[in-house]
Write a protein that binds this DNA or RNA. Structure first.
Lengths: 212, 212
DNA sequence: TAACTTTTGTGTACACTTTCACAAAAATAG
DNA sequence: CTATTTTTGTGAAAGTGTACACAAAAGTTA
């Protein structure tokens, strides 16, 4: 198959499958069918097979998928067979929480630099071993030198677009944005938004309307 | 129109429009066409009109939409014409960041209770004025008494499903989940997932593949 | 080796979303 | 009061993603 124009939802499901496969591996399961995997992660089995078909053939008919192999394949497909360095911009409350989030390491990500326009004791203390804290003015230089490709934006919304423009100039190709603004980026740069306000408001709508 | 079965994406766009309208109001703009609004928030004008059509007719042909009126209407539709109390479960790093996030207030949300299975000085200090910190064992009682309908889950993934079951029993109808697990909830309860791992992995895929 | 079972990979149909395109409505100008 | 302009609201078309259903392949049993 291997046609281009793969939907983003497919990629996010691959990530989900990967997580399930890791759990299965820990449980000692060696082979799994799309039906069982589907039940485990709440996805239609045909959907799973279609998603995988974008990238090749990974199963054995009459058997299913070898957990270890499929996991390796998915990791390779998603580029997760190596560690990725991530830059964090904004060491406020949210930024500090992200710095201390242990989940990144498990996923193969490492926040190796953090930037803020204010450098004080509180911020210095928040930065863990193996991560360097720089003043915002150093951003372009440091990111370019370290060849970092992924950044997390956790600054005030009024500064987000400016920060993103600078990141793009520095060679960043993927941005995870927590600021509540639509960002404009050139083609070739991917942005994912995490917008707490919108999420809560969507919940409110469904909680508020009596029907569903 | 007012047919039921409104897609979630429509609701999240309404939330986006609302934000744009607030900005426009601050800028002193009184009337706006779907074309201009579309340009401002990056949505196709026909899409905007279709989204609004689910709930009625809000514009004036040949004129556009009165910013103030549409904003009020959208707030009412989404149930944002009043303050919503929110319960937070898990006062770890992420939970503390959420407690100090000022954006909620602007959106009309207030974290009025927080729960954790550990109550120590650090956690007590993290809880701001107007929010009460309780031991996890008090969750059902407190939420039921305060009639809180929306909860944020920021606990370890191994505890998430258990916490959610308890929340549902307490009368919670909307859950914003930060734990990296698919949650199962009965019909009538809405869950929105925020999964940093998946978001970063999706970014990685697109950054890693040379094409896009 | 042939019949049978299992489960993949995929063509096709279905469902949902987005976009187009235009009639209908409101305002304005002559 | 009629013609013109503007912009909404919406039917229909196009596009996208999801699910069904089955032939093809691999394994198992006799």
């Amino acid at each position: 198959m291997r046609k281009w124009k793969i939907p983003e939802v497919t990629i996010s499901r691959l990530s989900l499958y990967l997580r399930c496969l890791s759990e299965l591996e820990e449980e000692g399961v060696e082979v799994i069918s799309s039906a069982e995997l589907g039940k485990k992660c709440g996805i239609n089995p045909a959907q799973i097979r279609k998603d995988l078909a974008y990238f090749g053939e990974f199963g054995t008919r009459g058997v299913g998928y070898y957990v270890k192999d499929l996991k390796e394949d998915l990791k390779r497909i998603m580029g997760l067979d190596r560690e990725w360095e991530v830059a964090l911009v904004g060491v406020g409350n949210l930024g500090r929480a992200l710095l201390s989030y242990q989940g990144f390491k498990r996923h193969g990500f490492k926040i190796s630099v953090a930037f803020d326009k204010v450098i004080d004791e509180e911020r210095k203390k928040a930065v863990p071993e193996g991560c360097e804290l720089y003043h915002a003015s150093m951003m372009e230089e440091v990111i370019r030198k370290k060849k970092i490709k992924i950044a997390i934006v956790a600054v005030h919304f009024s500064e987000a677009q400016r920060v993103v423009d600078a990141l793009v100039k520095s060679g960043i190709k993927g941005i995870l944005n927590f600021a509540p603004v639509r960002l404009s980026v050139p083609k070739g740069v991917v942005v994912r938004h995490i917008d707490l306000g919108i999420e809560l408001e969507v919940l409110t709508f469904f909680v508020n309307t009596k029907m569903y």
